[in-house]
Design a protein around this nucleic acid. Sequence first.
DNA 1: AAATTATATCGTAATATTGCGATATATAAG
DNA 2: CTTATATATCGCAATATTACGATATAATTT
Lengths: 108, 108
Amino acid sequence: MGITKVESYNDQTLTLASIFKALGHPARIAILEFLAKEKKCICGDIVTELPLSQASVSRHLQELKTAGLIKGTISGTSVCYCINEQHLPLIEQFNKQLYSPNTNTCCP
Amino acid sequence: MGITKVESYNDQTLTLASIFKALGHPARIAILEFLAKEKKCICGDIVTELPLSQASVSRHLQELKTAGLIKGTISGTSVCYCINEQHLPLIEQFNKQLYSPNTNTCCP
DNA sequence: AAATTATATCGTAATATTGCGATATATAAG
DNA sequence: CTTATATATCGCAATATTACGATATAATTT
C-alpha cells in the first residue's frame, strides 16, 4: 500500500502532480520566492536565507530541478540557479480550468 | 528529523505550500479535473471514475477540502462536492511572480 | 600539489503519506 | 424500526519524505 498506481493516470495529470508535489513544501516555495526576487543565486545564498543545512537546501534544489522548476548552471566552484519558466503555463492552464463559468453548483 | 520547521516560514508561504501539497497527487488532480468537467459530483461518481477504493477517494476528498480546494454540501445520504475557487487567485499570483521580466539570468 | 570553496550525495532516523478492509455514522426508503 | 445507500473514519502495513552529519566531488586559489 501507499503506492500510487501511476499507470492509471494520463501523462498530463502525472506531470501536473509532480510539479505541484515539488511545490508542496514551504522551503521550496521560499526558495522559489527568493529566486524570483533575486533573479539568480547560488546554493549558499539560500543556506544563509533559510533555517536549513546545506545538505537539505541542496536536496530541495535537486527536487525543484527534477520537477523542471529551476535550472542550474555550473559557474566555477558554485552553481548558479534560476527559475525555469517552462512549466509555468501548465500551472496557469490548470488553474484556469478550475474556475467555473456558471455558479449553479450544489455548494453555496 | 523529517520535521518541517513551520514556524520559520511566513503564513503566505505555508498556505501556498499546503495548497500545492494537496495538489501533489495524481488522484487529487484527477478528482479536480473531473469536478471541473462535471461542475459537481458525489464521492461515488469518483470511485467509479478512478481506480481507488471508496475509503481512499474519501481520504483524498478530505485533503482537498482541508486545503480549501473543494467544498462539500450534504444532500440526503450523499455529499455533493464542487470546486472552491477561494485560493485560486493565490496560485495565479504565485505563478505570475515566477515569471522574470528580463532574461539576463545565469542559465541559458 | 595542497588548501580552499561550493555543492552533491550517502546513510540513517524520524515522520508523513497512501491504500484498503473493516467499521462507524447518518439520511432515506420500506 | 429495519434495511438500504452513501460517506467518513479507524487501524495497520507499505512506502515516501525530510533533515542532518559525514563524506565525496569538483573547480579555484595559493
